[in-house]
Simulated scan of single mutants.
Amino acid sequence: MIHEQIDNIIKTKVNPVLADHFGSATLTKYENKIAYVKLNGTCASCPSAQDTLELTIKEIILKELPEVSDVKLDTSVSEDILDMARKILNISN
């Protein structure tokens, strides 16, 4: 339930703001009252990604859903990208 609410807030309130910078955000996980968000597009590699999280995404989510205690940036690398890198480098798992 809360996962869907956070997802909806990101889609309707966060992503329109990030779209102005050719980016978006995705909720990757919600546990222990913490939402983990991954930045996509140009926002993913932006040096101000942490500021975007703190000043925009976190502010919007916490205002809309007081039951969320924190929002953190998910900087993990997807398995698809890791698999592609392994293939390019000829590294087995």
Rank of each mutant, 00 (worst) to 15 (best):
I2H: 02
H3A: 05
E4H: 12
Q5C: 14
N8R: 11
I10F: 06
I10H: 09
K11S: 01
V14A: 00
V14G: 00
N15K: 02
N15A: 03
P16A: 12
P16K: 07
P16W: 00
V17C: 01
D20F: 00
D20Y: 01
S24L: 03
A25D: 09
A25Y: 00
T26Q: 12
L27V: 07
T28N: 14
T28M: 13
K29S: 06
Y30C: 14
N32V: 00
K33T: 06
A35K: 01
Y36V: 13
Y36A: 05
V37K: 15
N40W: 00
N40Q: 07
G41L: 14
G41M: 07
T42Y: 15
T42C: 06
C43T: 05
C43H: 13
C43V: 15
A44V: 01
S45T: 08
C46D: 05
C46M: 03
C46H: 03
S48C: 10
S48A: 12
S48I: 11
S48R: 13
Q50C: 08
T52A: 14
E54R: 15
L55M: 09
L55D: 08
T56V: 07
E59H: 06
I60W: 13
I61K: 10
L62R: 01
K63W: 02
K63A: 10
E64I: 05
L65E: 02
E67G: 05
S69D: 09
D70Y: 05
V71L: 14
V71I: 15
L73E: 15
L73T: 08
L73V: 05
D74S: 08
T75N: 06
T75G: 09
T75M: 07
V77E: 04
S78P: 11
E79R: 06
E79Q: 06
D80C: 01
D83H: 08
D83Q: 03
D83L: 11
M84N: 02
A85T: 06
A85R: 08
R86D: 10
R86I: 04
R86T: 04
R86V: 03
K87L: 15
K87V: 09
I88G: 15
I88D: 11
I88F: 03
S92F: 02
S92W: 01
N93Q: 13
N93E: 13
